[in-house]
Design a protein around this nucleic acid. Structure first.
Length: 556
RNA sequence: UGGGGUGUCGCCAAGUGGUAAGGCAACGGGUUUUGAUCCCGUCAUUCGUAGGUUCGAGUCCUACCACCUCAGCCA
């Protein structure tokens, strides 16, 4: 059995199951509605998994709809990136991609309908005045002096707004609801504003744009969405969502449900703050491997299924919590442990010379890529001079170093022979520069015949046949568990060591791998060939996540 | 001090009146040609607090407390 909880066992799935079984809904239709003003992040992944997942689970469909009502902040780059991310995560939207801007004509007509019904009016209050009229959380607002304009006048004014006869900010169209409502969203919310901006989809056709509140629910209705799932902060908007649906001749009545957005420690998940990291060049871009963006996690080496599993693991509820980033790390390790081929890379090399081997010794050793999966094997050149990790050799034996290579002791070269150290050289600084050893005969796949077993196993690479690679060692981007909740600006909590560029010597087979191939570099961690920079001539590997460390070892 | 929400183990989360699932983390122990993986075990007499109803309450009632959220011509 998998350790991932049963799929779709959350309150949204239960509501849908109920609606389906009592015939309220025939086929579930959900939608994922990003605004193309940034890249998708891990929080969106939760929403994607919920929306697409629940549709899939109940044989329905999920639309991808861009909520593109604010042209000034949106662009095509984001649209392309978002589509890419959703597909990479493993989901398919139903039919064509939708845009809220597809419905601008209909929305305009519905705005006219509202005016005709006496449910909307053009208001000339300046933003500053409007704020004063709105009241506060504890005091009712006051009616706008323009609230009682006639239907004819409103129709005429709204048409002039559309025709571009007013400057930006000169006036807005407002729904006429209740300025005394305890729900601020019902205090005559703005439904259309003037924005003389070019739109990435509709070009210069419009100079007035509908607001989110006036757009979202109606778009859902047009698309036949049955369950409109959004995050908790939109809860107060639900009465407004329902007000529009009730007061407009929409084709169906979608229902809005809210769930708690994802918060994770050592991470920021707000587009504004993510954009800040990009704009301040803290990272190299939205897809930097340290970013919690989907494209960043992808470049880091996270797999789609690891992210999906993570989303199943954290569940969906109406309570807002702070998820331990260790859960995400677990999801990644779990997937990579099960599926990633193994390979070897030496990061802090020290040379080992095997004295009982001829100078030109070259032997190809078959090394299986995985201990459980049938992934085949590669050949590792075994030569007289090797590299092992400096940390794996100790000048003197001690209990703490019981599995290390020490003079007089034996070590197993992973997938290869057993070696016995005979001596070593040091430089003036006291660093070991070379280890001398002898190979114990007939130890390929079997223990030494004399019964003296090796103490431990080390990874290695041929000193003469390995390939130098660039290693990008990533750690968490922030060194504060809640960087956006501290007194200081979140940028001061950026971990200065979040990226360390190092060198590694990899076995020849690794230079040939395609970008985005993941490996476990044995005893080092999970690495991925960089999506953009890796080539056979200049291999580049990103550290996805380290191996879990033994506690005793970690303490030392 | 208005409205809307949420409070179950360090973290996430099941549970919807019948006597507290699971995952992560942590901690013991075993296996191992990766100090990884894997395996086995420990980890809430208690569900924000205080009362009440009931044979029986995390689940029902009352009051209180804490936290989140709403005053963009953002979404």
């Amino acid at each position: 059995m998998s350790d991932v909880p049963a799929r779709g066992n959350n309150f949204v799935a239960k509501i849908i199951e109920e609606d389906l079984s009592n015939g309220k809904v025939e086929r579930v239709i959900t939608r994922f509605p990003p605004e193309p003003n940034g890249y998708l992040h891990v929080g969106h992944a939760k929403s994607i998994c919920l929306n697409f997942g629940v549709a899939q689970q109940f044989g329905g469909g999920c639309n991808l709809r861009f909520d593109d009502t604010n042209p000034e902040k949106e662009n095509q780059e984001f649209i392309d990136a978002i589509k890419d991310d959703v597909q990479w995560l493993g989901f398919n939207w139903e039919g064509e991609v939708h845009y809220a801007s597809d419905y601008f004509d209909q929305l305009f007509q519905w705005a006219v309908h509202l005016i005709e019904q006496g449910n909307a009016y053009v208001c000339d209050l300046s933003p500053e005045q409007a704020r004063q009229y709105r009241g506060t959380l504890t005091e009712a607002g006051q009616n706008s002096p323009y609230r009682d304009r006639s239907v004819e006048e409103n129709l005429e004014l709204f048409e002039k707004m559309r025709a571009g006869e007013f400057d930006e900010g000169a006036c807005v169209l407002r729904a006429k609801i209740d300025m005394a409502s305890s729900n601020m969203n019902l205090r005559d919310p703005i439904i259309y504003r003037i924005r003389k901006a070019h739109h990435h989809q509709t070009g210069d056709k419009w100079c007035i744009y509908p607001t989110y509140d006036f757009t979202h629910g109606q778009s859902d209705a047009i698309e036949g969405v049955t369950h409109s799932i959004c995050t908790l902060e939109f809860e107060d908007h639900r009465p407004l969502y329902e007000w529009f649906i009730a007061n407009l001749p929409v084709p169906c009545e979608p229902k809005q449900y809210e769930f708690g957005r994802l918060n994770m420690d050592y991470t920021v998940t707000s587009k504004r703050k993510l954009k800040g990291l990009v704009d301040n060049a803290v990272v190299t871009g939205w897809s930097d491997p340290r970013m919690p963006t989907i494209s960043g996690m992808r470049r880091r080496g996270f797999t789609p299924s690891s992210i999906r599993n993570f989303c199943e693991m954290i569940g969906v509820t109406r309570s807002d919590g702070l998820v331990d980033i260790a859960m995400l790390e677990h999801a990644v390790r779990d997937d990579l442990n099960k599926n990633a081929p193994r390979a070897m890379c030496v990061i802090n090399p020290v040379k080992v010379v095997i004295e009982n081997l001829p100078q030109d010794h070259l032997e190809q050793l078959a090394a299986p890529y995985h201990h459980e999966l049938e992934l085949g094997s590669r050949e590792m050149p075994f030569t007289r001079e090797l590299y092992i990790d400096r940390e794996d050799f100790k000048e003197e034996y001690s209990k703490k170093f019981k599995k290390k290579f020490t003079p007089g002791n034996r070590i197993r070269l992973r997938h290869s022979y057993v070696l016995e150290a005979t001596g070593f050289d040091k430089n003036e600084q006291g660093d070991v520069t070379e280890i001398r050893a002898v190979l114990i005969e007939n130890t390929l796949g079997v223990d030494p015949e004399d019964g003296i077993k090796p103490k431990g196993v080390v990874h290695w690479v041929s000193a003469t046949h390995s390939v130098e690679a660039e290693l990008r060692l990533y750690q968490r981007l922030f060194n504060h568990p809640t960087p956006d909740k501290s007194e200081d600006d979140y940028l001061v909590h950026v971990n200065p060591d979040s990226l360390v560029v190092a060198k590694g010597w990899v076995e020849p087979a690794l230079a040939q791998v395609t970008p985005e191939s993941s490996f476990q570099f044995e005893r080092e961690g999970y690495y991925v060939a960089d999506r953009y920079d890796h080539t056979a001539d200049a291999p580049v590997f990103n550290l996805t996540i380290g191996l879990r460390e033994d506690k005793e070892l970690a303490k030392g």
